[in-house]
């Protein structure tokens, strides 16, 4: 694949620049906004100046913004971004651990949504009235389903209202992601098929003339648009991960979204910057993979 090699190099370059950009933004915003959380304590004499100075040094808040940014960026690639003030553990480990919990709920929901959208399209196609309703539902944001889950926690006690990563929380979160992903993926799939309809109309007419059943024709249409559809799904997965910031505090699920939210509320600059950077980097990665997938696998675009 002669054409895809420079493209992959370009995509990797974009990814690198993206991660640096996200890292810089997050560190500068978090440091300037959250500042030094020990200053207040020192002034109120709850901490002696010597202890305060020592704490500031331990948590790496004594460096200038420029030096701190550089240290943060280099630490990012080594997995040592500093110590979380709230949890008193390495911020990078906390962020990675919580991302894994988020992925544990998001990936199955998304994968189910991906399969369900293809199954629905195969069975019912795009001209079914129920399909039209599902496409309308794709417009509903995930937090509305999350609010329904939060309400159900209070009304029927499922899942437990306490923040955790319990099985019931994972199921509830997976359900929310499935509902969002299924409708959006189906909407996207139909859109992609519609975009290619001019190229495909002769082919589908020929199949109909050969008495192919509709579901088989739909199956073949999916196969044709699969590279574009996979690229779309990958980008959507990155966006879904990013929306965990709103979904997790509502559901009470302790994943990366909740950790970022808490670090912001509890003024933990290192953890906030690390969580934001990791979340942003994965988002970037998904966008870049999506961008590379389509021209690499679509025979119409492949050089």
């Amino acid at each position: 694949m002669p054409r895809s090699m420079p493209m992959t190099a370009k995509a990797l370059g974009e990814l690198f620049v993206g991660i640096i950009l996200v890292g810089l933004i997050s560190y500068i915003v978090a440091r300037s906004a959250l500042g030094n959380p020990f200053i207040g304590l020192g002034v109120q004499e709850q901490l002696s100046p010597a202890v305060e100075k020592e704490l500031v040094k331990i948590y790496g808040l004594n460096e200038s913004l420029a030096l701190g940014s550089l240290g943060f960026l280099s630490g990012l690639f080594k997995g040592t971004t500093g110590q979380s003030i709230v949890y008193n553990s390495p911020a990078f480990s906390i962020a990675v651990y919580s991302i894994l919990w988020t992925l544990l709920a998001i990936l199955p929901g998304f994968l189910l949504g991906f399969l369900a959208s293809m199954l629905w399209f195969t069975l019912y196609g795009s001209n079914n009235p129920a399909t039209a309703i599902i496409r309308r539902l794709s417009f509903i944001p995930g937090y509305i389903y999350a609010v329904i889950i939060a309400v159900s926690s209070w009304l029927i006690g499922w899942p437990s209202p306490l923040p955790s990563t319990s099985t019931s929380k994972i199921i509830a979160y997976t359900l929310v992601i499935f509902l969002v992903a299924w409708t959006r993926l189906l909407h996207g799939l139909i859109g992609i098929v519609d975009d290619s309809i001019n190229e495909l109309s002769g082919y589908t007419q020929a199949l109909r003339a050969m008495a192919y059943p509709e579901y088989k024709i739909n199956q073949k249409l999916i196969r044709v648009v699969m590279p574009s559809y996979s690229a779309y799904a990958t980008t959507l997965l990155g966006m879904t991960l990013e929306r965990s910031v709103i979904l997790e505090p509502l559901i009470g699920y302790v994943g990366i979204g909740m950790i970022l939210y808490r670090s912001v509320i509890m003024a933990d600059p290192v953890l906030a910057a690390t969580a934001f950077t990791l979340l942003g980097s994965i988002g970037y990665l998904m966008v870049i993979i999506g961008r590379v997938l389509e021209p690499t696998f679509d025979p119409r675009l492949r050089g």
Partner: peptide, 19 residues
């Protein structure tokens, strides 16, 4: 545009909400 497309929007707003 390519660089800024991947920038996380909601998380960025969350961070900016601090300042």
């Amino acid at each position: 545009a390519s660089i800024l497309t991947g920038l996380p929007r909601i998380s960025l707003l969350l961070l900016l909400a601090l300042t």
